[in-house]
Design a protein around this nucleic acid. Sequence first.
DNA 1: AAGTGGTCTAGACCACTGA
DNA 2: CAGTGGTCTAGACCACTTG
Lengths: 240, 240
Amino acid sequence: MSNLSRTTWRGVYNSINARILDGTYPAGHHLPRDEDLAAEFNCARSTVHRAMQELATRGTVERKRKGGTRVQTLPVTRATLDIPITRLEIENSGFRYDYLLIDCSLAICPSSIAAKMHLPETQKMLRVKALHLANGRPYVFEDRWVSLKTVPEIMEVDLKLNSANEWLVMNRPVDHFNIEFFAKNTDRYEAEVLEAPNDTAILVIERTTWSGGAPVTSVTAATAPGYRMASSTTVNMTQI
Amino acid sequence: MSNLSRTTWRGVYNSINARILDGTYPAGHHLPRDEDLAAEFNCARSTVHRAMQELATRGTVERKRKGGTRVQTLPVTRATLDIPITRLEIENSGFRYDYLLIDCSLAICPSSIAAKMHLPETQKMLRVKALHLANGRPYVFEDRWVSLKTVPEIMEVDLKLNSANEWLVMNRPVDHFNIEFFAKNTDRYEAEVLEAPNDTAILVIERTTWSGGAPVTSVTAATAPGYRMASSTTVNMTQI
DNA sequence: AAGTGGTCTAGACCACTGA
DNA sequence: CAGTGGTCTAGACCACTTG
């Protein structure tokens, strides 16, 4: 009879979450201080804190020192996407992976790339075009720009053998990145490279990464037709 | 001279993360017990625990009781996507929002929907087709199935005025959901509804939600051409 | 200046699970 | 059944921000 169900942080999480959903705590509402909630739920402040941490992480609530805790004004659904390294994604599906370097050259990046990297001006970078194949079929075509100011060593790497991405991942720890997804119709070049009909809808993933505050690389990854990104999330923490 | 920089959980997080990136702890490697790491970093076990919680949440590491902590075998980049309620997304961009109910009827769901809901068989459901507009321009077209077994009350709701989604969000707390993104070419119907050319690439978002273990709804949201989903993530926790 | 959340500690007990 | 992570507590101090 030891475990007469002490208050658990998941319990507090679910209670607060329920109050937000049913309107007890409407959008923008100021929640009680952690300490008061701890008294109400008859638990330690750190238990309430753990629950609040979860609510804040999920974007349900916003917390500020001295400002207290408020229910987010625009309720969002926060989903988590796992973006694997393409090679591993393919190998893990049981397919043979091949990497094909299509082009590698020095060029002044367009201003759109500079903007994505938050650079004030265009500059000379390494541009790498490459194809990832699954069982010999085109899977992802990537068009990448690598900042020579941030990663001059990239010039010494043999990109015929290794994906630039994998080299960068191993040699330049990422501090921060942006990702965008959108759909587009294949242009003639993409259609050829991906061996897909012209004008087919494909999912495109753009990613820009920074290391130590400096931009490292910006990639546009055009996936083959039929590619899907999936995600699964549990909102309610009730056990069982 | 009070704050001689005690060990912080972010510090431990960054150290462990760095060791994983530089190969000190390779993929699949078994990390020391929290207690030993605490001794090494000269801090409390709970501080290490907090760092590990972060590493586990981000998918860098996997933890099991008695099993210890292991570096994930397939390194992933975990990105967080905020999916707003369409009405608020539009209103928040400063546009006028309109909602247009196109069709609402009872029908046996196709087996693809039953599969998405993890139902063994098809069954009668409410099917709702509706359009969200921004400044009078089509923004998202949704084709939704609602489980009458789980939410019979939906029959009493006037869906001409309110989006089924918003009613469901308010009245059926979501426990769990799946999301998938992909690109497709507009068919004739989608092109007409979205006022887009035929065969244009659009981003489609499929979402299925459960409440109390029972499927609630499955939506296919076809976004207008040009729609983008964006996400930004910070990996390294070093302060400034 | 004061109030609120953020973090750290030390210790205890629990719960899962691998050997 | 024994070891490891998970959680809770009580208390202290810090750091950010708002009034």
